[in-house]
Design a protein around this nucleic acid. Structure first.
Lengths: 209, 209, 209, 209
DNA sequence: TATGAATGAGTCTTCATTCAT
DNA sequence: TATGAATGAAGACTCATTCAT
């Protein structure tokens, strides 16, 4: 990875997070990276390709943190690590977080961007397989509440994700890591098998896929 | 509200949800609404202004549903009504939901759009005041777990919101109302004051603002 | 002349002097005159027609002052009255002056504007006939220096005109009537037949900054 | 200065003098210069910027002629050189003259046009400093009539300027250089301290129509 | 007379992208 | 690898003007 490419990627990330991908022009990236138009196109196919490459990098970084959380031992520890790891990653990488949370998922219109788009799909698939697979296994082992598989990620990470969206856009002041304490506890509460009120168990037990 | 304005708004909503605000051209709206360019600009300041007007309408519709949920009696019923109401609204109004979930919040760059933007801010403020206020009151009455006020909305609606994002973009197949059963139960679980494990209570009790 | 028409003309004059005819839109005049679009077009044919009507009025007002100067007795008095009258008119009617000095002469593209344009041409012709005729007569009588007829107006009024241009656009601070003393003396000097009168020298010596 | 830029400037000048700046469309310049839209905007910021650049060039050319006139020895020669130089420049550069006389002075609305506008202001300042400074010095030396400094330029060049305005717009037929004989003599007459020289009278008497 | 909705041609300007050097 | 001139399609928006009520 040449210095030029790094400068371009950094410039693109900062432009994209400030203005959004669509509102960012090649000229702005070109200028902020101190690179000529020709040089930029020599290194990257496209604005679209640039965004996709960036998106893939961000997603991979995030996935790495998430997947490593699965290595905790007890289910409760894993769930809490998923939530806390999410929020810590957001706080440590605010630009990446903003980019991932506010940019539309890249679509591969262009021929040459398809490789990156395919890599992205594969990364998402592998991530979902790992994490959702882990939840399904715990569920089948009776360690956590029974839910349709699709719902585990929203239930566990939805609050953190929602918090993060507000935080990256400046509407929340509390730091993500401070919020992590409560949000990870909440996540576990909503998944633990209870000695809680029977009515809830009953309701929850009825429908899952 | 004239017939022309209605046609323009409907056309804009369908274009925006199909392609996104930025990718939609005025020409497309103009054509789909069967209206001349001049007429469109006679009724709406801008593409930006059009999007803002639409955003405001959508948000108001959603808020109405949410605020009405507060009228349920028991805290548990209210929480479940908030979640279920959210998901039902999404299922009944998929275009509006997609628009609100995937469009960037309108910013008032233009002078004349500012009125709409201000109305939007006020709507958000009033909504947050009602709902967050309700949660704070329940917290102070000991009816729900103590959390920093900022966290109640992410905890309660985050999972539904996350589910909705996936659903409107076609990545989830389960219907929102089907998901509502579990997600509303989960939401209540994460807020109820327990006769649950003491460790959780201890953790949860430590930090709130 | 209805009140509506007066309001429109006044609004148009103020817009035209502030922004220029081309940069002024009908919408601005409409707004400043507190008149509806339809009403404006009911009273005036065109933006072009409005400008032409205004131009004609301004020119007539100016010409009246100039022609009345010819009624002074002595050639010297007439010349001085022409210059002083010019500058006084500019100072008393700054908006009109700015409009006449900075707007392009109206051309009759439109069919219906032709009447006004013809009136304007006739006004200019009559003015030139009177004034240039007077100068030619004086020349032939040996009262003033012999010059090609075309040059009398530039020689006599050019300095005042140039001063006025600078003054209406804010580049000169001295008031037109203050400048009139010297400029009318200069005008006479450049026309008088030789032996320069002492009074003029005296006048010229009196005031300068 | 690339060939492309030259072609664009030449095309713009011819369009602007034919139709005026406002009435000229970018498309016309683009076409007449045989240049693509993008290329035009690659070299010049704006139509406004293009006009400003052109204005600056024209003014600089004119100022050079005027300032060189100050190098004549005797005051009378200088005054006559200023007037004759003015009119000769107008006759030799009719397009530039028309452009400068009939276009509104460029104003720096745009950010990037400001550099050109500043250069223009500086050029005007330097010109005024030289020429008005020369007149003030002559006045203080008793070589010319005492006038407020602001009035020297209108008195000396006003008639030529007025003549030029009429000439470039086709309302006068006499050539500027022909007019120069009388107008320079008149200019000197209005400035000389009393006793009128015979040579001037002689000159004045020679040519008129 | 007054109103304001409707029209649609026309203009400026942006921008991703290509390519010769 | 790097440069920046060149391209031209596409888009937003303006505006004078008409006309039904």
């Amino acid at each position: 990875m040449s210095d030029t490419e790094d400068r371009i990627l950094a410039a693109a990330l900062s432009c994209f997070t400030e203005l959004g991908v669509e509102a960012t022009s090649i000229a702005m990236i070109r200028e902020r990276a101190a690179v000529s138009t020709g040089s930029l196109y020599h290194h990257f196919e496209n604005k679209e390709g640039l965004a996709a490459a960036l998106y893939l990098r961000g997603v991979q970084s995030f996935h790495k943190v998430q997947v490593s959380a699965l290595e905790q031992g007890r289910p409760q520890s894993v769930v809490e690590a998923l939530v806390s790891g999410h929020l810590r990653w957001v706080e440590v990488n605010p630009a990446w977080a903003r980019f991932l949370l506010e940019s539309p998922r890249p679509e591969a219109s262009n021929e040459r961007v398809k490789a990156v788009a395919a890599a992205l799909r594969e990364a998402n698939r592998a991530y979902a397989a790992s994490v959702v697979g882990w939840f399904a296994a715990q569920r089948d082992a009776g360690e956590i509440r029974k839910l349709p598989s699709e719902l585990y990620l929203p239930v566990v990470l939805g609050p953190a994700q929602e918090f993060a969206r507000h935080w990256v856009s400046g509407r929340f002041r509390m730091s993500p890591t401070a919020a992590a304490v409560e949000l990870s506890a909440s996540a576990w509460r909503s998944l633990q098998t209870c000695e809680v009120g029977d009515d809830i168990v009953g309701t929850a037990g009825r429908s899952f896929s």
